[in-house]
Design a protein around this nucleic acid. Structure first.
Length: 372
RNA sequence: GCUGGAAUCGUCUAGUGGCAAUGACAAGAGACUGUAAAUCUCUCGGCUUCGGCCUUCGUAGGUUCGAGUCCUACUUCCAGCA
């Protein structure tokens, strides 16, 4: 069982520590997106320097390339990518159900690789096997994701996810014994709560999944941030308090981190910060700005005054502007360092403010400035 | 000096009688939330009540209902010959 210590509670929010074989994660924490076994544009050294505690890779991408077997051969995900800290893998459900032409059956999902069009079948068992072979510390259950306005569609997807979850748990337990026998470190499974925007389904999903023997919970299928607070207020009180919760895919908007933490989520991951960075959109305390804009040509201030990241401590907006103009990779590296640091440190400050009891003030002050 | 060839929106470029004019780049802006994303979208002569109106293809004339496209002269550039 995954060890999760809760150090402090404030309403639904908690401050805690997740203990994994690759180290601890102080929560709430922002987990970097390392989809293809790399946080795009950043090395371990840079991620470590900016304060990242963990990363999340993707089973779908790694299944296709380089294949889980190779990652096992390289010593497992963390060893393979030289990430000396905790790792997560997403199950691949989200990606596969986002592909055109995906076919659903009780057995699993048949899909075509986005790379070469070759056909595959992903089942809950295969996702578990692949994730164990990849070897992240924390796995997500293989879930069915529906993007629909219809209550019926969402209910069917949720029920499918629940049936698959039971198979995921069974396969996870089988693999656990198999890997233990080989003397390999423990790996953990999170169930994924579904139900879309329908609170009755969210409640049903949380109730069903709470009864199963899993280590934690992913909260999935959040596409519109509006209503997320109500959804979390419905789901989190149902979930067993002693197990950690990961809010899947949220964190591009800083407000989502505040809402997520306030209503009971412990970790977050999002491609937004690094993607924004590569596209020239940088976080500032006053909101995002596009460094490519002409107004930064002669601006020799740091991206964010007072920011402690390597980018802001050493480089100017004018320099970044220039690098983006001429499409030099260093521009994307520096921007990625800044953005990733921004969301990691905002989440760290959320944790500190919860610890100190001034979360409400920090939230109010931050959001008022950022979204003014 | 002679003989060819060429001049198009910041740059290069398409266009041989119906054209505000092709494409690329540059430029200006926007989007991005469990990454098919170092990607994608829009604008890019001026004005507009969004129906149009005006001004544009080196300069000046001409032919034609109509000219970036044909003719004449001039200017500049390129190539070859002197």
């Amino acid at each position: 069982m995954l060890k999760f210590e809760i150090l402090k509670r404030e309403g639904l929010a908690r401050v805690g520590v997740i203990h994994t074989p690759h180290g601890d994660i102080k929560t709430p924490a922002f987990v970097g997106a390392a989809t293809r076994a790399t946080v795009k544009a950043l090395t371990y050294h840079e991620m470590n320097e900016l304060g990242s505690q963990a990363v999340l890779s993707n089973t779908y991408h790694l299944f296709l390339r380089p294949g889980s077997k190779l990652i096992r051969e390289g010593g497992g995900l963390a060893e393979f990518m030289s990430w000396r800290k905790p790792t997560f893998t997403d199950s691949g459900g989200f990606q596969i159900f986002s592909l055109p032409g995906v076919k659903l059956s009780e057995e699993g999902a048949t899909f075509k690789s986005h790379i070469d069009g070759s056909k595959f079948m992903m089942s809950p068992e295969l996702s578990m096997q692949t994730q164990w072979e990849i070897g992240a510390d924390i796995h997500m259950a293989f879930d069915q994701l529906a993007k629909s306005e219809s209550h019926g569609d969402m209910k069917r997807a949720m029920e499918q996810t629940h049936r698959w979850l039971e198979r995921c748990v069974a396969e996870h337990e089988r693999l656990e014994k198999e890997y233990f026998a080989k003397g390999l470190p423990e790996q953990y499974l999170y169930a994924v709560v579904q139900g879309g925007t329908f609170l009755d389904l969210r409640r049903e999903s949380a109730e069903f999944e709470s009864k199963l023997d899993v280590d934690g919970f992913g909260i999935g299928g959040v596409f519109v941030a509006e209503g997320m607070d109500e959804m979390l207020k419905t789901v989190c009180p149902i979930l067993p308090e002693e197990k950690p919760r990961h809010l899947l895919g949220m964190g591009q908007e800083p407000r989502d981190l505040f809402i997520g933490a306030e209503f009971g989520c412990d970790t977050f991951d999002c491609v937004g910060p690094t993607r924004m960075a590569r596209n020239g959109s940088l976080y500032m305390l006053d909101g995002r700005m596009n460094i490519k804009n002409a107004r930064f040509e002669h601006d020799f201030a740091p991206v964010q005054e007072g920011c402690e990241c390597e980018c802001c401590k050493n480089y100017t907006r004018a320099y970044l502007h220039h690098l983006f103009r001429v499409d030099e990779i260093t521009g994307k590296v520096l921007a990625s360092i800044h953005n990733e640091h921004f969301v990691v440190s905002v989440t760290d400050k959320i944790r500190d403010s919860l610890t100190n009891g001034d979360f409400a003030d920090y939230k109010k002050e931050f959001l008022a400035r950022y979204y003014k």
